[in-house]
């Protein structure tokens, strides 16, 4: 059975799905990612689906589960690169992927994760202190 590789880049796990996945492969990916999040301690997951020409309800459900599991393991998930035709089809299918954050491409996805993380750390910092001043 084929396997979807999970790459670690800095604090982010990057998954680029390049094959027409069998259901088993999708489930395997779900497991691999959970393991990898724990092992690496990463706080962000980016799933690039720009090579997928369809997303059916099974893949949609798997993505939603991955996002929920990651959340429990303290990692944010962003699905990036959904094709327009796929998005239109999902709307027609009635699948709105609740709970999944999306971005147009990997770059914007990384930005989104960075913002989330920054916000989270700001919140952690002393709440009595003045809000952190922009560093830029």
């Amino acid at each position: 059975m084929e396997r979807v590789p999970v790459l670690k880049i800095g604090d982010i796990l990057l998954v680029s799905i390049q094959i027409d996945m069998e259901d088993q492969v999708a489930l395997q990916l779900q497991e691999d990612l959970a393991d990898k999040i724990v092992v690496t301690g990463c706080h962000g997951v980016i799933i690039d689906i720009s090579a997928l020409d369809i997303v059916d309800s099974f893949v949609g459900r798997t993505l939603a589960t991955i996002a929920s599991v990651s959340k429990v393991l303290d990692a944010d998930t962003v699905v990036v690169g959904m094709r327009p035709a796929v998005a239109i089809t999902l709307v027609e299918l009635g699948l709105s992927l609740p709970g999944i954050r999306t971005a147009l491409n990997v770059e914007l996805g990384m930005k989104l994760l960075a913002q989330e993380r920054e916000q989270y750390e700001l919140d952690l910092e002393d709440e009595d202190e003045e809000p952190a001043v922009s560093t830029r």
């Binding site: 020409d53 369809i54 997303v55 059916d56 309800s57 094709r83 796929v86 239109i88 089809t89 299918l93």
Partner: peptide, 10 residues
């Protein structure tokens, strides 16, 4: 194309 392939998959 995307719609019919998705329907077929379901």
């Amino acid at each position: 194309q995307t719609k019919i392939v998705t329907a077929a998959s379901e």
